[in-house]
Design a binder for these strands. Structure first.
Length: 493
RNA sequence: GGCCCCAUGGUCAAGCGGUUAAGACACCGGCCUUUCACGCCGGUAUCAGGGGUUCGAAUCCCCUUGGGGUCACCA
């Protein structure tokens, strides 16, 4: 493994980037791209740049940029240069780099490699429609390419603001050297002259990305596969500008259950949403890494450091991956179980704070809160699940038919009586409650099952759930008594 | 539609010409346990189809089929 890549990596210092456009929260797919870039940089001792591609003035918003940064930080992805941290190649927002692009566009126009296009949206639409009907390649055919100087001046005089198009050389072949896909060949004749600068004076993506990557010294462009088809356009820009292209690596997309590109229809698609549902960042990162990358060993539960130490583009898959929430859930549970009780107590606080049980948990005190957390730990798939578990502790039981059935069994009344009679004045420990139940069984001679099940049903209204001693010790004797009374109403006769 | 990418179980995937085709999730069964969950043990299940190349193909080539991406004054 390794092969050619490794050599390039050794010769030049790796510098990668993640360049989201701030038109929405950080998407799961974007997060994975960011992660792969991060892992690649750290693995090879390189640098990661984060910049903002905000040339779509309509849709870009500064709040989204902040949100994306927050999500990246939450995931544990840090960077060496760019937004927030600054660096020698700034600014890191494309709208703030407008003059750089302008200068290069002017140069291309002067050299006859680009030209102003005065076509209206309607004209372009018409052309597209015609080509489509004729079954031809849909592309710009260069109507404005050969306008004379007078014609250009005339249109300018009419106040028409032109867009600038790159003159794409005909009959050429562009080869994208892709580290995960190998060489991918495109013919220049299929792309037509495309716009590099919009009439608002801002560059288009295919132009700006090239300049930024070049000026920032990016050596490897790792991004989603949806960009693969655009890469030849960028190669044309590199060529016109006389820049050397970086290495590319196009990672396949993340799909929903129906094998369509992940979208809102599939439920939560942003990092923020997963955070809010109580997925741990370590778990999300671990899961995302496994979507498209395979570690060498059999162990799949990996920390960020584990991944940094073994990440390689050679082990990145070419085929798209379906987002499997079951697996994420499993991984999240693994991380929850790995946490110490005190870590988990902290992690759970925000989720409890927004539940209806905040006050009651508060009143419990730290020791009992710890007991509660210990009791529910194995029942949490994600942190937000704490809410339902809290309900068992704090809400009055809502007896299920199964529970009622258990309570109506012969002899249950005696069990409840015996329990009530022997309840000590207080429990404060799990062990005390556990011992109490054992003693109850021993002294009364009831079968264990005839004690545990009815008591569970009586206390919680359910026939399943966490261990009774946790519940009892958190409640204390008075609450246990109160619940026994409640349960009596469900008894026959 | 043109161009491009992709194709191993339900899902993520290992595999890079010779393997009993790993592993994980999910599912099913068993054990543990006061129940459920956790945990442990075990099981079902995959090379899309067709042609080649080869002594030998999941692995290489071609076609078909299927899925996806892209063709914007969005990124």
């Amino acid at each position: 493994m390794g092969g050619g890549n490794e050599e390039v990596v050794k010769m030049t210092k790796v510098k990668v980037r993640f360049a989201p456009s701030p038109t929405g929260p950080l998407h799961i797919g974007g997060a994975r791209s960011a992660l792969f870039n991060f892992l690649y940089a750290r693995r090879y001792g390189g640098e990661l740049v984060i910049r903002s591609e905000d040339t779509d003035v309509e849709r870009s918003r500064r709040e989204y940029e902040d949100e994306i940064i927050e999500s990246l930080e939450w995931l544990g992805i840090n960077w060496d240069e760019g937004l927030k941290v600054g660096g020698a190649n700034g600014p890191y927002r494309q709208t703030e780099r407008a003059d750089m692009y302008q200068e290069l566009v002017d140069d291309l126009v002067d050299r006859g490699l680009a030209y102003p296009c005065f076509c209206t949206e309607e004209e372009l639409e018409e052309e597209r429609k015609q080509l489509l009907e004729q079954g031809e390649i849909v592309r710009y055919r260069g109507r404005c390419r050969n306008l004379s100087e007078e014609e250009r001046r005339a249109r300018l005089a009419q106040g028409i603001k032109p867009a600038i198009r790159l003159q794409v050389p005909p009959g050429r072949v562009y080869v994208v050297e892709d580290l995960v896909r190998g060489n991918v060949v495109f013919e220049s004749d299929t792309m037509g002259d495309f716009i590099i600068m919009k009439s608002d004076g801002l560059p288009t993506y295919n132009f700006a990305v090239v300049i930024d990557d070049h000026l920032m010294g990016i050596t490897h462009v790792i991004r989603a596969e949806e960009h693969l088809s655009n890469t030849p356009r960028q190669l044309a820009v590199y060529e016109a500008l006389g820049f050397t292209p970086p290495k590319f690596a196009h990672v396949s997309l993340i799909l929903g259950k129906d094998r369509q590109k992940m979208s809102k229809r599939h439920g939560a698609t942003s990092v923020i949403q997963y955070r809010q549902r109580g997925y741990l960042s370590e778990a999300l990162v671990n899961f995302l890494a496994l979507l498209g990358w395979a570690p060498e060993g059999e162990e799949e539960i990996l920390t960020l450091d584990d991944m940094i130490n073994s990440f390689s583009l050679d082990r990145v898959a070419k085929n798209p991956a379906v987002f499997d929430i079951d697996k994420l859930n499993y991984i999240n549970q693994q991380y929850i179980k790995q946490k110490t009780i005190s870590e988990l107590k902290e992690a759970l606080r925000p989720f409890i704070a927004e539940s209806p049980y905040a006050d009651r948990v508060q009143k419990l005190g730290e020791d009992k809160y710890g007991l509660l957390v210990e009791g529910i730990r194995d029942y949490l798939v994600c942190l937000a699940d704490v809410k339902e578990n809290l309900s068992i502790f704090f809400d009055d039981p809502d007896y299920t038919p199964e529970a009622v059935e258990v309570l109506r069994q012969e002899g249950v009344g005696q069990v409840l009586d015996a329990c009530q009679e022997r309840l000590p004045d207080s429990f404060t420990q799990f062990d005390e409650a556990k011992k109490f139940l054992k003693t109850l069984i021993k002294e009364t001679g009831f079968r264990p099952k005839m004690v545990y099940m009815p008591l569970r049903a009586a206390f919680t209204g359910l026939t399943r759930g966490l261990e009774l001693p946790y519940l009892m010790s958190v409640w204390g004797s008075d609450e246990c008594r109160r619940r026994l009374e409640l349960a009596r109403q469900q008894l026959p006769g």
